Amino acid sequence: MSEITPELVRHLGVLARIQLSDEEVDRLTGQLDAIVDNIAKVSEVATPDVPATSHPIPLQNVFRPDVVGEMLTLDEVLQNAPDAADGRFRVTAILGEEQ
């Protein structure tokens, strides 16, 4: 017996504020029913003795160590800036007066 009915699909459409045509309701009823059936099959296999996995093989962090390197001087940082003042980048204001 199918758990997904056209009435349920219409109800879900209303909840999601999606207007569905009769053709879409018929198509989605079959698709959602197949999805629910497949989830039920997976649920049968997912037993307490089968550990949950997010990836088939173990993964490890591939980041390199964080080592301080050569740093740019303030003059080097600002040399290509279109506009600078007082050792900072100078940009146009983006906030309105009311903020």
Results as ranks from 00 to 15, higher is better:
residue 7 E to W: 03
residue 71 M to N: 07
residue 97 E to Q: 10
residue 75 D to V: 01
residue 66 D to L: 14
residue 5 T to V: 04
residue 95 L to D: 02
residue 98 E to V: 00
residue 68 V to D: 06
residue 98 E to P: 05
residue 51 P to A: 03
residue 40 A to C: 03
residue 34 A to C: 04
residue 55 H to S: 13
residue 97 E to C: 06
residue 28 L to E: 09
residue 89 F to T: 00
residue 26 D to H: 12
residue 68 V to P: 09
residue 47 T to F: 00
residue 10 R to P: 11
residue 12 L to R: 12
residue 4 I to C: 09
residue 75 D to C: 01
residue 73 T to K: 01
residue 31 Q to V: 15
residue 96 G to C: 05
residue 43 S to V: 13
residue 70 E to Q: 07
residue 14 V to R: 05
residue 78 L to S: 03
residue 92 T to Y: 04
residue 2 S to A: 10
residue 83 D to R: 10
residue 8 L to K: 07
residue 88 R to Y: 11
residue 8 L to Q: 11
residue 80 N to P: 00
residue 92 T to M: 02
residue 31 Q to P: 14
residue 38 N to K: 01
residue 53 T to E: 15
residue 64 R to L: 15
residue 4 I to R: 07
residue 25 V to M: 12
residue 91 V to N: 05
residue 66 D to T: 09
residue 97 E to L: 09
residue 48 P to I: 07
residue 51 P to S: 02
residue 5 T to R: 11
residue 54 S to Y: 01
residue 51 P to V: 02
residue 98 E to D: 14
residue 35 I to Q: 08
residue 53 T to H: 13
residue 65 P to W: 08
residue 34 A to F: 04
residue 79 Q to Y: 05
residue 36 V to D: 13
residue 2 S to M: 04
residue 74 L to D: 03
residue 80 N to D: 02
residue 77 V to L: 12
residue 57 I to L: 13
residue 77 V to K: 03
residue 87 G to I: 00
residue 67 V to Q: 01
residue 23 E to A: 15
residue 58 P to N: 02
residue 37 D to T: 00
residue 94 I to P: 00
residue 24 E to Y: 05
residue 53 T to N: 13
residue 64 R to Q: 15
residue 82 P to V: 09
residue 50 V to D: 02
residue 43 S to R: 12
residue 55 H to V: 13
residue 70 E to C: 02
residue 21 S to A: 15
residue 94 I to E: 01
residue 20 L to V: 14
residue 35 I to H: 03
residue 84 A to R: 04
residue 2 S to F: 04
residue 61 N to E: 14
residue 90 R to F: 00
residue 70 E to A: 11
residue 93 A to L: 06
residue 93 A to G: 10
residue 42 V to M: 15
residue 42 V to T: 15
residue 70 E to M: 03
residue 17 R to F: 06
residue 35 I to S: 10
residue 32 L to Y: 03
residue 44 E to F: 06
residue 1 M to C: 12
residue 54 S to E: 01
residue 9 V to F: 09
residue 79 Q to C: 11
residue 9 V to L: 07
residue 6 P to Y: 09
residue 48 P to M: 08
residue 4 I to N: 08
residue 72 L to P: 10
residue 42 V to E: 15
residue 85 A to R: 14
residue 46 A to H: 09
